[in-house]
Write a protein that binds this DNA or RNA. Sequence first.
DNA 1: CTGAAAGCGCTTACAG
DNA 2: CTGAAAGCGCTTACAG
Lengths: 333, 333
Amino acid sequence: MRDVAGVAGVSLSTVSRVITGSVPVKPELAQRVRDAVELLGYRPDATASSLRRADRVSLTIGLVFEDVANAFFQAVYRSVEDVARTRGVLTIVGSSDEDPDRERELTQAFLGRRVDGLVIAPAGRDQSYLTRDREAGVALVFVDRPPGFIDADVVMSDNAGGARDGVAHLLAAGHRRIAFLGDAESTFTARERLAGYRAALAEAGVPHDPALVRMGVRHPAEAGDAAAAMLAGTAPPTAFFTARNTITVGVVYRLRSLGLQRSIALMGFDDLELADLVEPGISVVAQDPSGMGTVAANRLFDRIDGAAGAYDRIILPTRIVPRGSGEISPAPG
Amino acid sequence: MRDVAGVAGVSLSTVSRVITGSVPVKPELAQRVRDAVELLGYRPDATASSLRRADRVSLTIGLVFEDVANAFFQAVYRSVEDVARTRGVLTIVGSSDEDPDRERELTQAFLGRRVDGLVIAPAGRDQSYLTRDREAGVALVFVDRPPGFIDADVVMSDNAGGARDGVAHLLAAGHRRIAFLGDAESTFTARERLAGYRAALAEAGVPHDPALVRMGVRHPAEAGDAAAAMLAGTAPPTAFFTARNTITVGVVYRLRSLGLQRSIALMGFDDLELADLVEPGISVVAQDPSGMGTVAANRLFDRIDGAAGAYDRIILPTRIVPRGSGEISPAPG
DNA sequence: CTGAAAGCGCTTACAG
DNA sequence: CTGAAAGCGCTTACAG
């Protein structure tokens, strides 16, 4: 910047004014500055700029997800990025891999870069470590799951309601022995979906069989093994409710290798690509990740812009997508 | 930081030394500093730090992709992030949406944040605008496609070779009328894959029919329409080579709605999730996006660490994954 | 081992 | 409308 000022024959202040466009500058001088910028290939240093600005805004936000490689979070990310882009704000992302320490580490790293706000899908159960930062002006929005020990805006799917609807869908097809395969019980969404499953059974007056519930399942292979074990039991299920997309994939593969994909019903939580090309098509309870991202981003920028007011818990509805696997009736007998 | 120094009763220099761990500090003072940090909830400002450091390192790298939501780039991203993480480096990403202006805009934004390096899947044909920045010390690695008007490290798939192998696979099944559906000709990968297609036909002595080649196809719907139009023609193809994952998806849907998925062969470039659950399974020429990300990240950090030497063009091999659709023989006649 | 001072690249009152 | 000076939160020679 000093070089630019030298070449253009003006003061640093003037260069700054031309670049930020904050204050009118005589056209002739402005042109000289622009020529010098061009000539020298000068790039303004955004970090130095934010250091001195009165508002201390960095025009950067951070996203902490479970796994950027998961299609669900990817869709959330993309819609947040789209909103951020319209405001000239850059987005930093990271994957916590469901590890609370990693979540905190990433968050600190983002905070160290002085992000204006954070969108977090919490891995740990305690986010009180962010209290100080919020007081310092960092905006906070949680997605997919609520935070612990800190009150904040959160936008998530209707996990319990969606699972209840999905299980009710299987009950309507005549199933009474419906298995539930879910993620670790320490995960909020897994608990909620399990609650929805139980609610649906209770409403239908179907007794709850603990042998048909398996938690702590995560990767496709584990899910497949868990499903196979249940099917080999003495009172096997006639339908599966898989509470997470990776679990759904595992069970679909396994049913297929057992040749049972047309006789055992399956309903998954969260949608999958190509789910309608498989035979039978995979019926799911679909979430709205893009909607989640958009809502979260808008709320975040409202807070960054200084919106006060109580924190909201925004629940996004889910939607049943029947494609075949969830409409299979139980074998007679 | 000043507050920390005040509370701990030491100088700013000492606080800095404790935090960076650059120079030994008497344990007792160090402890006082750590207590003050804890008490005040102090977060070191990484941007201010990098501003003053001798090496001016920001511990941040930027990735410019076509679309973060594409499974291919997602895998590249994830493996770059994994490498960066081991070095305590943060990763910023953005989608160019195949728009050269957007590519440049994003790149400038990253450079303005003083990233240490950039991994770019170029959208435009001219990246010479980065020459100055590289001279200024920014490391540059291109992925998926080579840059234009600037020499740099690039890591990409063997596009031509992979397409040639894929088409040869269809030829081996007996096909002579093989259609090619590709992205805009302005895209490097599309041109290379087309060249591979032509090479395979030439090697087999099969005449090249321009009516069987359609470029500029991108989204699933367009791809489906293009395929349907060819099939309705006077001399329809007996097989399709789809040069991009979104195109493959579109053609699979269309063949299925036409009831032709078991009579028309299909081979796609780039793999798809659940491709083996569809019937018939979707045969593809698979790339290695994780490998691409790892290789690119390692090269980038080598350059950031000051590695000199000529720029490399690293070509990653592709691999044929037969799953059914590519092994369908042409109908007799 | 520790502190006082200078300065990284910028923005912002303050004068003019 | 423009320039000289101060200062954002840090690190780094320089003395001691």
